[in-house]
């Protein structure tokens, strides 16, 4: 589905979202040591859309992806997928939904079984979900290998016989062989060399068109997320800071954290050697994630626009316009300042 079609479908409102997450919270630990990795996150995802999830390590983006797929069970909130609340489904019912939703991990060397041939790995989902067996399964596997740019000969080989980029293709084939609708891609290019990253990004785009896939694409790389996603969701300490269409990212992003992330992206072709700055100016320390959550906006300690209320009241996620929402008390003033 093209970007225009997605937007049209979203605007006309006649298509229900494929995925609707409402107030999802994931907590680890218990009692006073409870740690909230994902804190009341809500978003909708249209069929054929790619939602990019970006944030720094520890912001909860991986936990979010796993909780959507119920690989971790959320502590609160709804995950509506194909009309069912996944958070309320039990073992057998959930297993019945599994082939509609799959995950691609960062490191294929740890997500694929080294003792299984690629053929074994790809046939397993077909067998588990009762989709195909025998010669039919082999034919489906061969087609999927061809779709990810490998040959049928790959079926008899083991993971160690592949390069990192090829192995990520195998992992993608494994995720797609049961023809899921929703695929969570967790940093799928982060462990790859730069020259190979682009191949995998291109492949994911092709496969989305070909199989009508819906992606949640999790990454710390803003340029790749912007390139691939229709919308970008920026997370900070488990909360959504901002969510907006990718094409508006550079121009219209309002949250001070999003702007900081944008300013940290350097384009090699235009970057020049940095001028030395006084060490004190670079000493801003990223705060450690507190176990006991403070009041107010979590970004406040690092924010150059913070006011007293930012430290006392949590900013709600407010819709600015259309599909752009931001969680910042001062977004109206910042938008006016940017316009001036």
């Amino acid at each position: 589905m093209t970007a225009a079609a997605v937007m049209q479908a979203a605007a006309s409102g006649d298509t229900a979202p494929l995925l609707s997450v409402n107030g999802m919270t994931v907590e680890f630990g218990s009692g006073r040591k409870t740690f909230r990795a994902v804190d009341g996150v809500s978003f909708e995802l249209m069929r054929g859309e790619t939602l990019g999830v970006i944030g720094e390590s520890g912001c909860g983006k991986t936990t979010l992806g796993r909780a959507v797929l119920q690989l971790l069970r959320p502590s609160a909130g709804q995950v509506l997928f194909r009309g069912r609340d996944l958070a309320r489904l039990g073992g057998a019912e959930l297993r019945g939904m599994r082939h509609h939703m799959q995950m691609i991990f960062q490191d294929p060397r740890s997500s694929l079984d080294p003792r299984w041939t690629v053929g074994d790995t790809l046939r397993e989902p077909l067998a588990v979900h009762g989709i195909a067996s025998g010669a039919t399964a082999d034919r489906i596997v061969d087609e999927m290998l061809e779709a990810v740019g490998l040959t049928a000969a790959a079926r008899k080989r083991y993971p160690h016989e592949f390069s990192g980029g090829q192995l990520q293709r195998v992992a993608i084939a494994r995720a797609l062989v049961a023809r899921p609708e929703l695929v969570v891609c967790d940093e799928p290019t982060a462990s790859l060399d730069v020259s190979v990253q682009a191949q995998v990004v291109n492949l994911l785009s092709e496969l989305q068109e070909r199989f009508g896939l819906t992606y949640i694409f999790i990454s710390h790389d803003l340029a790749i997320v912007r390139h691939l996603a229709h919308r970008v969701m920026v997370m900070y300490f488990g909360r959504v800071a901002e969510i907006l269409p990718s094409e508006d990212l550079a121009r219209a992003a309002r949250h001070p954290y999003t702007r900081t992330l944008l300013s940290a992206v350097r384009d090699p072709a235009t970057t020049v050697k940095r001028r030395p700055q006084p060490a004190e100016a670079t000493a801003a320390e990223a705060p450690q994630l507190p176990i006991l959550r403070p009041q107010g906006c979590y970004y406040e300690p690092r924010c150059t626009h913070a006011e007293p209320r930012c430290g006392s009241a949590t900013p709600p996620l407010e819709t600015m316009e259309g599909r752009h929402s931001v969680a910042c008390h001062r977004w109206r003033e910042l938008a006016r300042e940017a316009a001036a």
């Binding site: 990192g164 990004v201 340029a223 790749i224």
Partner: peptide
Amino acid sequence: SGLLNSVPHVDGARRTRLQAIPGSV
């Protein structure tokens, strides 16, 4: 040239094909 071309730019075109370097080392 290939290395520089294979990364998307934060102000560049979106959802186009990236110019990947084929194959691997």
